[in-house]
Design a protein around this nucleic acid. Structure first.
Lengths: 204, 204
DNA sequence: GTATATTCGTTACTGATTTCACAATATCAT
DNA sequence: ATGATATTGTGAAATCAGTAACGAATATAC
């Protein structure tokens, strides 16, 4: 079993390695990747060890093969569909940000409560009424939801998604969600983050 | 000295407490606040202990006074000015999100490289050329920057901000920043987050 | 006024994560 | 071939964050 933080780092390594591959770099040392990722070399080696890939003493890691190993580990080979709930400013920004970024992860449906938005297609993603969510989530086999809704409805909408089969939630709403242990929630709490920055900018 | 995660939790507690205060609740127990925040009661008590506030056995914590204690700890009494760099989709969403949310933290200037945007005022925040950043950051005594720029220029722009006096960066660019130890960086890496969610949605 | 029940404050513990350190191994120059 | 060098893989140590547990303190009931 492997826990949250290493998974995040693997995702980062892969992104950095993709950049290197694009530049034509063929192999990389743990300390080099570590410097780019902002972690220690030992950390990189252990993370890579954890997914069962092996490098080559004196030549480091083969970039292409390491990317492949990480992808085998992280990705569903068939791809995963994602829903976006809440097509406000933030929701649209996220649609724009993710559009075509990860081939194995596609935002395939958006939901909102504003009838103005029903039927519109934003960045190739169709917007439905939130009432249709249970049906659409089931039909498209969506297991991942991105919540960009106001705090006061976030729990209710999370519950609705979970009842429809969602197993993982990326929560931008500034409120902790209460879910059963079989559902994974990752919070992106921008208010908390900026207050942290403000604190350390002041006291560091 | 108190490190990153407790600070984040304090920010969260304060937000929850403000909600309670709004509902007219006067006092709260550690286990109640803990349940709302999704942490253990011991954690709450210890976090509150760390900032030197004391509750009352059998009556819990006074909501108003606890909020005040946390605010004294987290906030600069004179307020802090924030710059937003990169007025794209995400930047505008963040402007909308933060506008008027925390009285002690105001986004007072935005910067972009697109001349179309210069001089425009978005959510009460004026948009300047990135070339004016050093000057404006100094004049407005800005110590905090929110980076919503493309990955390939993020480091360069971070350096520019730091040279102008910025001490804390909230980094939305999907690339780790290399900064000196006296500057605090908080990363919000949405790609990493969604890949984490995807992984656990699949394997949990 | 006393007993009782409940909660806080804090110390000691536990578990997880990260780093250290070094043997094992591959490469390269000679 | 062989020696020198640089790197990986990984058990052990260290660090860190979170939890449990319990004495001290306070309110409440009778």
């Amino acid at each position: 079993m492997i826990s949250g933080k290493p998974i995040g780092r693997l995702s980062l390594y892969r992104r950095l390695l993709n950049g290197l591959m694009h530049e034509g770099v063929q192999s990389v040392y743990s300390h080099d990747l570590a410097a780019r990722a902002g972690v220690t070399a030992a950390q990189v080696r252990r993370d890579i060890m954890n997914i069962g890939y092996s490098g080559n003493p004196n030549r480091g890691y083969d970039v292409r093969m390491l990317v492949e190993s990480i992808s085998n580990f992280l990705d569903d080979p068939d791809g995963q569909n994602v829903a976006l709930v809440g097509v406000g400013n933030l929701g649209r920004a996220i649609l724009a940000f993710f559009s075509g970024r990860r081939p194995k992860l596609s935002i395939v449906a958006a939901f909102d409560s504003d009838p103005e938005k029903f039927g519109r297609v934003i960045r190739g993603c169709r917007c439905y009424s939130i009432d249709q969510a249970p049906e659409v989530i089931r039909e498209l086999n969506i297991k991942i939801a991105t919540l960009c809704v106001p705090a006061n409805v976030a729990q209710e909408i999370a519950d609705l998604c979970i009842r429809a089969g969602v197993k993982g939630i990326l929560n931008f709403a500034p409120v902790p969600l209460h879910v059963s242990g079989s559902v994974y929630v990752e919070d992106i709490d921008m208010t908390m983050s900026i207050e942290k920055v403000a604190y350390f900018a002041r006291t560091n």
